[in-house]
């Protein structure tokens, strides 16, 4: 079956794009609603009593009663959910059970550290992955390709805590070149960030590089690239104007996965290197069973995922006007 192209004028971007955009944003909004329901259901609608779960087995009835009052647990679940959502929307999703600090302040105070680690990691990941992916993809099956693919494959697979520990053992403990942790939580110079950024990048570079490689390999095989080469177009123009743009839309999608991966990695890496970011805060909240904080962090992470994937879909849709990149 040949696909017949529409008659000129029947398909115009300006008419269809906004509709798809609205649709995609609506999906994202639905996901946010679903996520907040799940987070609340997991953290607030517990089997048994939340207060008992938080305080543990040894708590006295008085302690439990006090916490129940503080959390407003006597009220119906739906009302508590409405309160919580209202609080989230007005920027006040409750207070920490342990420190009493407002959840919003706790989160805000930790964002800068995480943003700088993740941002630095991205600055390393993107150019390295681009160089490696294009080099490997232009000569599929060559020795260079095999080495790059093998390293990317292995690196992508290793959990951050394990690679982090090995790197710390080598560069901090044995060689003493770099600090093993950020110490007591104070931010002490750029050296502290080297190992965390390397660990994060190690895991994600491979993922992105392999997608770029596949994109390049597939676009190189596309009939239009073969044809333009046949007609005599120069290799440089071909690579920059045709092969790379062809590999880009799936790469943008993969970049969203990379950011998702960084979010997971940051939790582990911050815990490992004692960085004062949201990841470490999340782990602390989990260990302290500080439920309002756990809710806040969970919502923050899930929202970031939703937004990042929304952006990726919109961008790759823009880059590939001929096909629906939107799911």
């Amino acid at each position: 079956m040949t696909t017949t192209a529409p008659a000129p004028g029947t398909v115009d971007r300006p008419r269809t794009l906004p509709r798809r955009l609205v649709g995609r944003v609506a999906v994202a909004a639905g996901q946010l609603v679903a996520v907040s329901v799940i987070v609340f259901a997991l953290t607030a609608a517990l089997p048994g009593d939340t207060a008992e779960v938080v305080l543990g087995q040894q708590a006295t009835p008085e302690q439990v009663a006090a916490l129940r009052a503080q959390l407003g647990l006597d009220r119906p679940v739906l009302l508590r959910f409405a309160d919580w959502v209202g609080g989230v929307l007005t920027g006040d999703p409750g207070r920490s059970l342990v420190t009493g600090v407002p959840v919003a302040d706790e989160l805000a105070g930790r964002l800068a550290s995480t943003a700088s680690v993740a941002g630095l990691a991205l600055l390393v990941i993107v150019p390295v992955a681009l160089a490696a992916g294009v080099t490997a993809g232009r000569r599929p099956g060559s020795v260079t390709d095999r080495v790059i693919t093998a390293v990317a494959t292995a690196g992508q697979a290793i959990p951050e805590f394990a690679s982090g520990l090995v790197l710390v053992a080598v560069f901090a403990v044995t060689l003493g070149w770099l600090p093993a942790t950020a110490g007591g939580g104070s931010f002490t110079g750029p050296a502290v960030l080297v190992l965390p950024v390397v660990v994060l990048a190690l895991n994600q570079v491979g993922r992105l590089a392999r997608q770029i490689r596949i994109g390049v390999v597939e676009t190189e095989r596309a009939e239009y690239v073969v044809h333009l080469r046949r007609l005599g177009m120069g290799e440089r123009t071909l690579l920059l104007r045709h092969v790379l743009p062809g590999a880009l839309p799936p790469t943008v999608q993969q970049l969203a996965r990379v950011v998702d991966g960084l979010l997971g990695g940051v939790v582990v890496v911050e815990a490992l290197f004692a960085l004062p970011g949201v990841g470490a805060g999340f782990v602390e909240a989990v260990q302290g069973r500080d439920l309002p904080l756990v809710q806040g962090y969970a919502l923050l992470f899930a929202t970031t995922t939703v937004v990042v994937n929304l952006l990726a879909d919109l961008v790759s849709d823009r880059l590939a006007p001929h096909r629906e990149a939107l799911r």
């Binding site: 192209a5 239009y224 046949r230 007609l231 880059l319 001929h322």
Partner: peptide, 20 residues
């Protein structure tokens, strides 16, 4: 001998870069 002979393939839609 690239570019010495022009070519119009059987499925012309496939040889136009869809992204450009």
């Amino acid at each position: 001998g690239r570019g010495r002979v022009g070519h119009l393939p059987q499925h012309p839609g496939a040889v136009l870069d869809p992204l450009r």
